[in-house]
Amino acid sequence: MRSLGILLRKELLATFGSPIGYTVAAVFLLVLGYTFSLTLFATKVANLIYIFHQMYVLTILLVPALTMRAFAEERRNDTLELLLTAPVGEIWIVLAKFLAVYGLVLAMYCGAFAYVGVLEAYGSPDWGPIGSGYLALVCHAALIVAIGLLMSSLTENQVVAAALTLGTSLMLWFADSVAYLLPVPLDSIVLNLSLIGHFRPMVTGSVFVSDIGYFVSGALLALFLTTRRLAER
């Protein structure tokens, strides 16, 4: 656990010492503020469902920019050799990188709490869907960050890592559309892989263990594969 603390401190220094993190956070909050204002004036309804969907999309689009450098940069700069020849398990290296990026994404989500405050001040929002919506986003972010780390561990080119993360996330997003074209039983398997299929019920207030399990098990699988990739020598 001490190794995790040491590595996490280093990752936070790298994440918050880089302009990428601030740029991504600024773009995220700017686009979200724009969308929130438009939606509120257009619908005059005190809910955040549109905003949660917007955050879902922005997470898919922006997280690759945060995760792309995780391992790709270490590999390109040869600093990965320093980490992998130090007496620490690969799992701690992966977890530290995951927690640092995940922490930044959650901090960005916290910035969006301001909208909840606006709704509370000027309307009567339904807190149930807001709570489940944030839960959906927290689960969703964990999966996308974990996929990003896995892709970054596969290459030393940051752009390739970002493209792979974006491509994989988009494939998962649209998996339900593809499912209708597939024969039984492939259709139900692919349907169950759908990102939006597990996100949508939660964001509208229906929390199922199966949906949470999808995100958590997906994230754990991606982190496991990342660890295996690092352990391949």
Binding site: K10, L13, A14, G17, S18, N77, D78, T79, E81, L82, T85, A86, P87
Partner: peptide
């Protein structure tokens, strides 16, 4: 690994430290 010190060929360092 605890008993070795290793300097790779490119002398890698973390530039932000």
């Amino acid at each position: 690994r605890r008993r070795i010190g290793y300097v790779p060929e490119t002398a890698p360092v973390y530039g932000y430290m």
